[in-house]
Amino acid sequence: MLEGKFDEASLLKKVIDAMKDSVKLCNFNCTENGISVQAIDDSRVLLISLLIEAGSFEDYRCDRNIVLGLEMESLNKIIKNGNASDMLTLVAEDSPDALNLIFEDKRRDRIAEYSLKLMDIDQDFLKIEDMKFDAVVNMPSAEFAKICRDMKTLSESLQIIITKDSVKFNSEGDFGSGSVVIKSFTDLEKTEESVRITLEKPINLTFGAKYLNDIIKSTPLASQVTIKLCDKQPALFEYQLPSGYLRFYLAPKFED
C-alpha cells in the first residue's frame, strides 16, 4: 500500500504544472524510497525525470512497488481543486485501479477526497548513464525563465555560448536578433541570486526555444536552476525539490 502525505499540496501542484504541457501520460513508480517518473514528450525531444524522495513527504510509506499510470490533464484537474496550503495525502492499494487524493484544510475541518482512475501505460525506460559535462551554470531560475521567454519572441532557436566566466544567450530571428550575457556573480546575502559558472571546455549549443519555454514552467519549484552542458549532448536542466529533483534532458539542434 502507498500512503504519502505532503504537508502542503503546493509541491505536487507545482510539479504537475511543470510537466503537464510536455507529457500526457506518465507512469509514477512508487517504491519505499519515494516516487519517480521518467517520461518523454510527444515530439521525442525532451526527457523528464522526476524524483520525489520520501523526505519530501511529511509521512511516507510504500510496502510494495506500485506503478500508477496517470493521465496528467486529469490529475491536474483534481490537483487544482485542492488549495496550495492543504495537506495532501496520496493513497493507493497494492494492485490499484485508482489513486485517491485527500486534501485536508489545516485551519478548518474540511476534507475533500478524490479518486482518479489509473491507466495501463506502455513506456520504454531509458537508462541514463552518469553523463560528463563540460560546463555547469547555476543561476536564478526566474532570470533564466525571463531570458527564455524574451529570446523566444525573436526566434525558434536559442543559442547558449559559454566562455570563461560568462554565458551568452543568443537569438537570431527573421526580423532581428538579440542576446543576453550574464556573468559569474556572488551575492553573499541572497545566495539564490548568485550565478556560478564552472567551465572545462567552451560551449556553443543551440536548442529549440519551445522546449526551453516548457522547461521554465518549473520556475516556481526552486529559486535556482542548474544547467549542465556538453558538446553534441543533451543539456540537463535541474530544479531541486526539498528532497529530490525535477530534471529535463533536452536534445540539441544541429547544423544540417
Partner: peptide, 14 residues
C-alpha cells in the same frame, strides 16, 4: 538549416 535531434538516440533502452 538547423535540425532538431531526438532525445532517445542519446540514451540506452533498458
Amino acid at each position: 538549416k538547423e535540425k532538431q535531434a531526438g532525445i532517445e538516440s542519446f540514451f540506452f533502452s533498458g
